[in-house]
């Protein structure tokens, strides 16, 4: 019991800073909220075995994205899955700065703070991040999370003629919302596509600026 208490005390400085950002209450209206739209590229889909290779994230606030305030991290991993290399386009030899998992988490937590996280099929990316945190003996992410799949569904008409419970792929959503798909399957590229989709969906859900976070969380 004392150990548990003690270990909490010993969280590294960057986690404490991250945690502290949550003391501030989230604004009520969507237009005042800072959203971080992110995507991860991984070696595969197994939460235990597979690893995150890169994280891309952009901030959406007041329906704007500032490119200077975006994030693109590459993570050094031992695991290498030849099947996913082509898709992810991250060949180990590519000239990028590689971070350790802990460095990556540090940068990521500092970037997101208490922002509301948005991702496409969010559960997957959140779980992947939480697996890293677990390996570092840290608690799970504390942020509120929105999934663009759910949000997109809410913009579709209710009709018996279409299957609204379908799991829309990012490509399908991009096509229907008229978003150009370049740099698919890089974390930053996908994060950008997701972010534009997110802005368009918020625009469609509209309500003249009276849209609340609560409304989005309920969808």
């Amino acid at each position: 019991m004392i150990d548990l208490f003690k270990s909490k005390k010993n969280y590294p400085e960057y986690w404490k800073t991250y945690e502290a950002t949550f003391r501030e209450k989230q604004p009520k209206y969507v237009s005042d909220i800072r959203f971080v739209v992110f995507d991860t590229e991984t070696t595969g889909f197994d939460f235990k075995k597979d690893r995150i290779l890169s994280i891309g994230a952009v901030t959406v606030k007041r329906q704007e994205i500032h490119i200077s305030d975006s994030l693109e991290i590459y993570v050094k991993q031992q695991r290498f899955n030849p099947e996913t290399v082509e898709i992810h386009g991250i060949i180990r030899s590519e000239k990028v700065t590689l971070n350790s998992e802990e460095e990556a988490v540090k940068i990521f937590l500092e970037y997101i703070g208490n922002a509301v996280l948005v991702a496409h099929h969010a559960q997957f990316d959140i779980r992947m991040m939480n697996e890293i945190l677990k390996r570092l003996d840290l608690p799970q992410l504390k942020n509120k999370v929105l999934d663009t799949v759910n949000l997109y569904r809410a913009t579709r008409i209710t009709s018996n003629l279409i299957n609204t419970q379908r799991n829309y792929t990012l490509d399908e959503i991009a096509e229907n919302l008229d978003i150009s798909v370049k740099d698919r399957h890089t974390a930053a590229g996908d994060a950008m596509i997701t972010a534009i989709a997110f802005m368009k969906i918020i625009g469609r859900l509209g309500r003249n600026g009276s849209l609340k976070l609560y409304d989005l969380m309920r969808l």
């Binding site: 891309g56 975006s70 693109e72 700065t97 590229g189 950008m192």
Partner: peptide, 12 residues
């Protein structure tokens, strides 16, 4: 640092 997003904007 590699920046996929700004590279895409530059492309456009």
């Amino acid at each position: 640092m590699k920046n996929t997003i700004s590279a895409r904007i530059a492309d456009f």
